[in-house]
Design a protein around this nucleic acid. Sequence first.
DNA 1: TTGACATAGTGGTCAGACCAATATACCATC
DNA 2: GATGGTATATTGGTCTGACCACTATGTCAA
Lengths: 251, 251
Amino acid sequence: MPSTTARAVTPIPRTTLTESAFEQLISYVVKGSWKPGDRIPPERELCQQLGIARTSLREALKAMELVGMLDSRVGDGTFVCARSEFLSRPLLWAFTGTDHAELRDIMEARMLLEQDLAGLAAERATPGEVDKIGDAVRMMRASIDSGVSILDADMAFHLAVAEGAHNEVLRNAVQLLRNLMRQWIYLKLLIPDVPAQVLRRHEAIYGAIRRRDSEAARKAMWKHLNETAMLVTQMVEQNSGSKKKPRRSKE
Amino acid sequence: MPSTTARAVTPIPRTTLTESAFEQLISYVVKGSWKPGDRIPPERELCQQLGIARTSLREALKAMELVGMLDSRVGDGTFVCARSEFLSRPLLWAFTGTDHAELRDIMEARMLLEQDLAGLAAERATPGEVDKIGDAVRMMRASIDSGVSILDADMAFHLAVAEGAHNEVLRNAVQLLRNLMRQWIYLKLLIPDVPAQVLRRHEAIYGAIRRRDSEAARKAMWKHLNETAMLVTQMVEQNSGSKKKPRRSKE
DNA sequence: TTGACATAGTGGTCAGACCAATATACCATC
DNA sequence: GATGGTATATTGGTCTGACCACTATGTCAA
C-alpha cells in the first residue's frame, strides 16, 4: 500500500453477517446473558430476531459449537456449555501437541497471567472469595483422600483465584489458556504423587492470599505452574521422542 | 440413565457432516498439507471433493475462519493463516466479552502483560531486536521534531518490545489489547506534552532492556502504562461526566 | 501510462424443500 | 404401574438453486 503524501487513510473494515452474528452471540455467552445449561432460542426464531437467513446464522452457531461453546441436539435444541469446555475440544488442542514452541508459549503465558492473578487476588479478594479459594483446597484434599480425580478441584481452585483478582479480561483469557491445555493437565494429574504435590502448592498459594501477601502469592503460583510446565514438557518429549530444541534467542 | 444388570452398553457416537469436514480440514492444517499462506481449493470444488453440499462445507470453513485458521477473501479465495494467528480470535473473545468495567480491566490487563513482555525482552531480545527497539525510539524522536503524529512510532516501539520477548501468545494478546484501546491511545497522543513524556518513558524502557535489566524494564513499562491509564481514565470521565465508581472489592 | 469496461471466478446470502432425530402425548396391553 | 407402540410437533441437519457482492485479470481506447 503506497503511502500518501497528504493525510493517511485507513482501510474500511469489511465484515460478514456470519461474523457479526458470531460476535453478538458470543457476547451473550461471555457476558452471561446465556448461562451454562441454558437453551438458546431455536434457529428459525433466532434468525428472525437477528434479521438474517437461517444459513448465515447456522454458520455462526456451528462455529460456536465446534469450539465447544454450544451443544446442539436434534429435536431438543441448542444449549450453552460450561466455560471449561470452550476451546477444550480434542481437535483444537491437537495444535499444542504438534508444535512444542507453541505449547511452551501457552504455558509461559499462563504462568505469567496466573502469577499476576494470584498477586491481585491477595490484594483484592473479598473474605467470601478467600473462603472460596479455601473451599477448593479442602475439596482437593477430600478428593485425594477418597481416591477420585482432582481435576475438578484443580479447576475450581484456579477459577476461584482468578475471580478474586477482579479482572474479567485476565480471568477469561487464562480460562481459555487452561482449556487449551486440558489434555495435558489431565495427564499430569494421573502421575503418582502429583496430586499430593499440587495440593501442597495450592495450600501455599491459598496461605499467601489469606495473609494478603501479594508477592508470596505470585512466587507460589509461579513455582506451581513452573513444575507443571516441566512435567508437561517431559510428557511431550516422551510422546514425540523429539530432540530438545533451543528455545530462546532466535539468532 | 439406568444401569443394566448385564453388560454395560456404550452410547453410539453421533456426528454431523459439518463436524467431520471440520476435522478433516483441520488435519490438513495440523499435518502441514496446507501451509500458512496456501490458498485452499474453492468452495464449489472442495465440496465436490468431500462429497457434501456447499452449505455444510461452509459451516466447517466458517468455523475454521472464526478461530483464526483461515482467511477468506471474496473474489480471491481462502488462505491458511500463520500459526500465530490461531489463538488471536479466541483471545479476542475473552477480551471483548465483558461489560462496564471493561476499559479498566483492559488497561490493567495491558499493563500486566506489557510489563511481563518488557521484562522478557530484557532477558531474551537478540542484539538485532534491541536495535529495532532503539530504532522505534529514534523514530519517535524524529516524529516529535518534525511535528507529525507519534502514533506509528508508538506502535512500532511496543511491537518491537513484544517481539523481543519471544512469546507469540503474549505478543498476540497485547496486540489485541492495544487494538481495543486504539481510539484512546490516539486521543492521548493529541494532548500537548504527552508525546515528549512518552518518548522519555520509551527511552527509559529501552535503556533497561539494553542493559538487560529485567526488573528495571518491568518497572519502567509499568510506570509508562500507569500514566496512560490515568490519562485515559480522565478522558473517559470528561467524556461522560460520570461519577467515579469504586473498582475493587465487590462487597 | 492511465482509465474504463467486460468477464470470470470466488466467497456471501437467501429461500425453500426435505430429511433425521428427539420430545411429548396418548393409548393399549399386561 | 410399567412397558411398548404410534402419532405429532419441534428442532437441528442437509441439500439445491438462485442471486448478490467483490476481486482479479484481461482488453481496449485515449
